[in-house]
Design a protein around this nucleic acid. Structure first.
Lengths: 142, 142
DNA sequence: GCTTGAACCTCTAGCGGCTAGAGGATGTAT
DNA sequence: ATACATCCTCTAGCCGCTAGAGGTTCAAGC
């Protein structure tokens, strides 16, 4: 029987976050002591580890919900889990492409800064005028 | 004299977002018609373009506030603007490194999925057990 | 058995950066 | 004069937590 604090340490999840996951139905309601404190078992520890690990890989809580559901039904075909992971991979690749364009632009900005007055600053000039950009870097979504 | 809708179209910023920027003091309060509708001039159009472009490059609204302030004082030395841009570049590079690790892991997961039952699914297995990961990918912050 | 004090509890509000919608007023073209 | 697109304010919601107030419970040491 684990306290929420122990669970917190074992998984690297803040106590509040665990309670939050319970609140949104990602973690099941645990048992309670007579005094009303939460007590967890190993199954719940595993579940939380799964959630945290998925979060580290960038999956949204909604995606994790689906993945947990699949994980709970070992006889179903697994192409769904595969699809979720592929979707995530795609997103990561898109974000990387965007960041690459940003990096190019930022590098150029910083490189051309002559260290004079702000009136002549290349950094500010580029921000003022998008047409000076060599790459496209639209669509905020990171 | 531009309406908020025109400004919205010219800069690709939603009308609500423009009002939000005004509310948080990023955009100045514009003039109004007798009936109370906002009317903008070209200086404000430029300012909003600057903001949007900076956002596309991933600067936070706080950083943009600083950049705008610097831009308003052309005689100050520009190393501050340079520092802000360098900070941003650093962040972008960190995020890219993280995404790279994630991509590696996701690719491996997807690659090893045999298409069988969820019970044998490599994707889910990896999520269950971090020790199967070849790369580190800690610290969510993207 | 009693006292500490760390860890627990609930509840509410806030972060960034918007976005959506209700419900009503204004501006412009015909 | 009328239609109707656009504007207004206001409130609440999104994601994924995080922080804090104000109070209770548990376990260890005496």
């Amino acid at each position: 029987m684990l306290t929420i604090g122990t669970l917190s340490k074992k998984t690297g999840t803040k106590v509040q976050t665990i309670r939050y996951y319970e609140q949104i139905g990602l973690m099941p309601e645990p048992g309670r002591t007579e005094g009303g404190q939460r007590r967890y078992d190993n199954a719940q520890l595993d579940r939380l580890s799964f959630i945290r690990h998925s979060r580290q890989l960038g999956f949204s809580l909604d995606a994790i919900r689906e993945l947990l559901d699949l994980s709970d039904h070992p006889n179903r075909p697994c192409h769904e889990a595969d699809a979720i992971a592929r979707r995530q991979l795609k997103q990561v690749e898109q974000r990387m492409a965007r960041l690459k364009a940003l990096r190019t632009e930022l590098k150029r900005m910083v490189h051309e800064c002559s260290g004079g007055r702000t009136g002549d600053c290349k950094v500010l000039e580029v921000l003022r005028d998008h047409s000076e950009c060599l790459t496209e870097h639209e669509e905020t979504g990171a």
